[in-house]
Structure formats: C-alpha cells, structure tokens
C-alpha cells in the first residue's frame, strides 16, 4: 500500500505516494531526479549516499522514504547558492579533493555536518569524522585538506558576519 509523504528537499516541498520499502536514496534519485547523491555499497558502509536530514548527516540508503516524511533534506544539489559554490565545494575544487569524484557528494555532505557540529576541526577530528565515507581512489589527503580549508573559511566568514 502506498503511503503519502510530504518533505522538503533543498528548500522545495515535495509530495509523493511511496511504497514503504522505498529507500530514501532511491526516492531522491529516481522520484525526484536528484542524481547527485550516489549509491555506492548499498550496505551502510561507504557514505556515497550521505545527505543532511534536519542538518545532520545520514546515509540515505539506510532510511526509508516514509521515515523522511516531514523532514528537511539537503542534498549536494542544494549546497550551491545562486550559482556560487558552497565554501566546502569550493575548497574541494581548490584543493583537488577528488579523483574519480564518486564519493565526493557524500564527502561534502558529511563534511558539512562535521563543520556544523564542530567548526574547530583538527586534522585528526576530520579523519575520525570521515570514518563512514570511503574513497576507493584513496584520495584522502586532499579531501582532509579541503575540509580543513573549508572549516577555516566558514569560521572566518562567521567572524566577519558577527562583527
């Protein structure tokens, strides 16, 4: 039996009837057509499907679409504003924080949650914070560099805006 859900994705409200067994990642990709969120391992391991739910990073392959009813979801498509890359996206670009790019959307969403929870990130806390995101190219050095750079930029812009 289909269930009606109503949720906000990247600021836009969506209403849909879904099968209870539909996983959130497939709802995002196939129903909404937002294919920036990737399916990697399908076993809650790799983190390629990471999105923000009410601001916190979650693996969207391990949540039912019905469980997202009423929630506020951000995917990689919701990060850039008015054509300007989000500071984390820009930092990945500038620090070459990707090789094949498959893990990148999940890395960026995981990083957004990490920086939100603790803007004073150290290299170690970034590495620990990425334990749920795998890069099969093993490009971690520059990913960590990019996240530290983004955290620094977000910290300093917060300082500017609080003046």
């Amino acid at each position: 039996m289909l269930r009606h859900i109503s949720l906000t994705v990247n600021g836009t409200r969506h209403d849909a009837d879904v099968e209870p067994r539909q996983l959130l990642v497939y709802f995002i990709r196939e129903t909404l057509g937002l294919t920036g969120t990737n399916v990697g391992c399908d076993t809650s391991t790799c983190g390629a499907c990471t999105v923000l739910i009410d601001g916190r990073s979650v693996k969207s392959c391990t949540m039912l679409a019905v469980q997202a009813d009423g929630r506020d979801i951000t995917t990689i498509e919701g990060m850039a504003r008015n054509g300007d890359l989000h500071p984390i996206q820009r930092a990945f670009h500038e620090n070459h924080g990707l090789q094949c790019g498959y893990c990148t959307p999940g890395m960026i969403m995981a990083a957004a949650s990490l920086i939100e929870e603790n803007p004073q990130l150290s290299e170690e806390s970034v590495r620990m914070g990425l334990e749920g995101n795998l890069c099969r190219c093993t490009g971690y050095q520059n990913i960590v560099k990019a996240i530290l750079a983004a955290a620094e930029e977000i910290r300093s812009s917060a300082r500017v805006s609080s003046r």
Partner: peptide, 9 residues
C-alpha cells in the same frame, strides 16, 4: 558505534 552518520540515527 559505527560512524557519524550511523550515530545520528
């Protein structure tokens, strides 16, 4: 337990 994404849920 798990990783940050897992612990959020």
């Amino acid at each position: 337990v798990g990783d940050p994404q897992v612990r959020h849920r």
